[in-house]
Design a protein around this nucleic acid. Structure first.
Length: 580
RNA sequence: GCCGACGUAGCUUAGAGGCAAAGCACUUCAUUGGUAAUGAAGAGACCAUGGGUUCAAUUCCCAUCGUCGGCUCCA
């Protein structure tokens, strides 16, 4: 962490103290817990005796400003366990922390400014009354004590703080801007997907335009995969319970499965993932070492019974379209296959100018019961992924406990418009499923050996990828992805026939074009096309028609320097080919 | 699932214990224009659903469903 970041964290942590001080003055019977700095600000968790609401935030902010005047420093004080416990009589949260810290042999410290002091390990602004002040309380939310749903739910107040008012204002403006690119809002405005109360929450319905974009994306992934020797497979969306008992999914995820009982009483489930189905395709006949790798690609929906409170637009749904693939290979082929997947992922995301961060998702050694297989297996698969990352000089973070229950992963993450991180692509190395399903091949000596399985998704969930893509482009898709690429706008009805001729010409070249013959002004038609973020508008009046020419406006409001229809077609061709 | 906020026309929103409003979109008529909204008229609402309080509930209360922001979970 650099100095600047540390100073910012200190500033925010100090502002969190200030928040707690204000709350304690306003409602003295409140129980304080903890208040760290976070990515874009800070929070503080309280147990209020009387509920507070967002309407109270201005009042708290005013109190904070008042108290701040008296804060000239943060004074550190070392305190004995007994003394610390005495200061927090009646606050079980602080008592729990104090006992825990002192059991670990930590020195207990308090930090005091003005009349407010709090148990705290430090990291504060040196001159609070000068440095603090550019802060804003943002929202109120519930949060479990210490992040466990077994614990009591506390009230969390989120806020943000910056060194200057200007930076605070810029940040708040950014949040406003982000709301405008919210995929839920744009999805409606651009007519990409809808939800229906009758169909149910978390089950998006895709409109013609949205479906088109999904298909274009999936085709792009397929082009990249095809070049690496993948083959398409297809599977049913339900299966007998026994398949998941064999895979281990039933044990681990039975509560999240949509279950079906047939009229004869047999138990089926909607598939929540595809790997077990794919194993049965591999298993259809004896395989030789010469047959490997078998690379199966399958874009298909999976269904998971997510808790209702977790659903969020397209980011978290109950039916997920995965662009899934499974590679069954020999152990000596693992490295190359992982390299192939990585190269597909890289090519795919760079076409959109996405920044990806990588995470090596490892198992949590403290909870072996959450994972299949033996320690030695995990050490081997984890180190293979790590080696791959190092060999390719890739920056990554380690995610302990982020592995799948059957194997470690390399996860690719990106952010939405509000800066929330989401996982998109994933590469998973799995030696457990092949054992469980007895997936083997005959080696050169004719002996049976177990295969390794590489699970790979490029977009991950198409729904989630769409949400991020919509926000990334603020709805203005690049031309190759735009549902409507060209809108033809005749200035008067006299020009409609000429417009139709141009439309036919565009359709002949497989360009997605429409003709706006509404009896509106040209300005109004331009506005509609503009709001739909259509990349190109062909505007034609008597002038263009008589000269057999066109005038082309882009959605940036510029006019293209060409007026020959043929020139425009080759301009489009080049742009779509370049995929940018 | 948990905490909190919110559900009014296709969309965005106003409203108040006593006949439910506006803009956009839609339909019709007029207008035929030069790079982000031509004008007029019309139609469109079980005010999320189910209970309760009240002479009277879209408004107040309770429950359910849904959405949003978090928390938890995420193969």
């Amino acid at each position: 962490m650099n100095d600047k970041q540390e100073q910012l964290n200190n500033l925010r942590h100090s502002t969190a103290h200030l928040l707690a001080a204000a709350v304690m003055e306003l409602w003295p019977d409140t129980l304080r817990t903890i208040g760290p700095s976070i990515d874009n600000g800070f929070y503080f968790d309280f147990e209020f005796k009387k509920p507070v609401s967002e309407e109270d935030l201005p009042k708290i902010e005013a109190k904070m400003a008042e108290i701040l005047k008296t804060w000239t420093s943060f004074e550190r004080e070392e305190v004995s366990k007994e003394e610390a416990l005495k200061r927090y009589e009646g606050n079980p949260y602080k008592i729990e922390l104090i006992n825990e810290f002192s059991d670990q042999g930590q020195t207990l410290t308090f930090y005091k400014s003005g009349n407010y002091e709090d148990l705290c390990r430090g990291g504060h602004s040196e001159n609070p009354s000068q440095d603090l002040g550019a802060f804003k309380l943002l929202s109120i939310a519930g949060a479990y004590w210490r992040g466990s749903e077994k614990n009591k739910m506390l009230t969390r107040i989120y806020g943000t703080a910056f060194p200057t008012k200007q930076e605070l204002e810029d940040h708040l403006n950014m949040l406003e801007e982000a709301k405008k690119r919210d995929h839920k809002k744009l999805g409606k405005e651009l007519d990409l997907f809808v939800f229906s109360d009758l169909v149910g929450g978390g089950l998006p319905l895709w409109t013609p335009k949205g479906t088109l974009v999904r298909e274009l994306l999936d085709n792009f992934v397929w082009q990249l995969r095809k070049a690496k020797g993948y083959q398409k497979v297809e599977i049913p969306h339900i299966t007998k319970r026994e398949l998941y008992e064999a895979s281990g999914h039933w044990d681990k995820f039975k509560n999240e499965l949509f279950k079906i009982t047939t009229r004869e009483g047999h138990e089926f489930a909607m598939k929540p993932m595809n790997c077990p189905h794919h194993t049965q395709i591999f298993k259809r006949m004896p395989m030789s070492y010469r047959d490997l790798p078998q690379r199966y690609a399958n874009t298909t929906m999976v269904y998971r019974d997510e808790q209702s409170g977790e659903l969020a637009g397209l980011s978290r749904v109950r039916c997920i379209t995965q662009d899934d693939a499974h590679v069954f290979c020999r152990y000596d082929q693992i490295k190359e296959e992982i390299g192939n997947v990585y190269s597909i992922v890289k090519d795919f995301y760079s076409a959109f100018g996405f920044e990806l961060s990588l995470r090596l998702s490892l198992r949590d050694p403290k909870h072996p019961e959450n994972y299949l297989g033996q320690d030695a297996q995990w050490e081997s698969t984890q180190s293979q992924l790590e080696e791959f990352l190092k060999d390719n000089h890739l920056d990554y973070a380690e995610g302990i406990g982020e592995a799948a229950f059957y194997g470690p992963k390399i996860d690719f993450m990106t952010k939405d418009s509000l800066g929330r991180t989401w996982q998109v692509a994933t590469i998973q190395l799995d030696v457990n499923m092949p054992q469980r399903f007895d997936l083997s091949y005959a080696n050169q000596e004719g002996k049976q050996e177990v295969v390794a399985m590489v699970h790979a998704a490029v977009m991950g969930s198409i729904e989630r990828f769409m949400s991020i893509l919509i926000e990334h482009y603020a709805g203005a898709f690049p031309t190759w992805l735009a549902p409507v690429q060209v809108m033809i706008i005749p200035i008067t009805e006299r020009n409609n026939d000429y417009g139709q001729k141009l439309l036919d010409g565009l359709k002949d070249k497989n360009i997605r074009a429409e003709l706006d013959t509404n009896p509106e002004t040209m300005q109004a038609k331009i506005r509609v096309a503009q709001l739909q973020k259509i990349p190109y508008m062909i505007i034609i009046g008597d002038r263009e028609q008589s000269a057999d020419q066109i005038s082309v406006r882009t959605r940036d409001g510029k006019t293209l320097e060409l007026n020959n229809f043929g020139d425009f077609l080759s301009h489009l061709d080049k742009e779509v080919e370049a995929k940018s």
